[in-house]
Design a protein around this nucleic acid. Structure first.
Lengths: 105, 105
DNA sequence: TCTTTATTTAAGTAGCGACTTAAATAGTAA
DNA sequence: TTACTATTTAAGTCGCTACTTAAATAAAGA
């Protein structure tokens, strides 16, 4: 669960990908429709979509020769929760380590 | 408010910086104490600290020849909130744009 | 089948970011 | 002042990431 989180964090850290996520928010867009909103090449958009897909931030649906993408609606809430959990978990872990440190002098 | 958020997002996207933030959680550490926890050079740590400071994720206190750093305790909550707000704001903006689009055919 | 459309994969370039070592700054102490 | 400690700034290297164009795949229609 740590790895996918880190992936999602760096995925969402990119302004370009945040713009893409917003455009796909609440609706499906084909790769081409999405790409037409940007001044970069289609392959560049496709590559970002792959990154977002791997991070679990978008879903892909194939229909004929089109591929439709949409932001995962639970994403923001999940990311916020995941951030907090990541912190909680790590704080617990660090607390244990600190105790051990003290015991070991 | 968009710029600092983006800064915080990419700052926290780095595993190294997340580790640093965790070590400084709930306590102050001098730059040197912090650096001794990592296998990278002190300048590298110093550079990460600058990044975190610019993103508003850590505070710096100078005392003599030491500089003490600490994670900003409100950070995680803020980041989560900011993420949600960023989305809400942008969704509002996109909604307005969509309406305008429809009006303009 | 051949062509067109939608999209990805491949291969390469350029800029950025994480690191390095060396030098500079700044505070304290002798 | 000189020396020492803590830390940063400077300058350079290297790998990763965002992009590019060209080629490949895959679906659908003539």
């Amino acid at each position: 669960m740590t790895a996918p989180t880190a992936e999602a964090l760096s995925a969402i850290a990119s302004p370009r990908r945040r713009d893409m996520l917003r455009l796909m928010w609440g609706r499906e867009l084909s790769a081409g429709e999405l790409a037409s909103n940007f001044d970069i090449s289609w392959p560049a958009v496709s590559q970002h979509l792959t990154t977002l897909k791997q991070a679990g931030l978008v879903t892909e649906r194939r229909d004929g020769r089109n591929r439709y993408y949409s932001s995962d609606e639970t994403m923001v809430g999940s990311l916020a929760m995941i951030l907090e959990q990541m912190w909680d978990n790590d704080l617990d872990r660090l607390a244990s380590l600190a105790e051990e440190d003290e015991r070991n002098g």
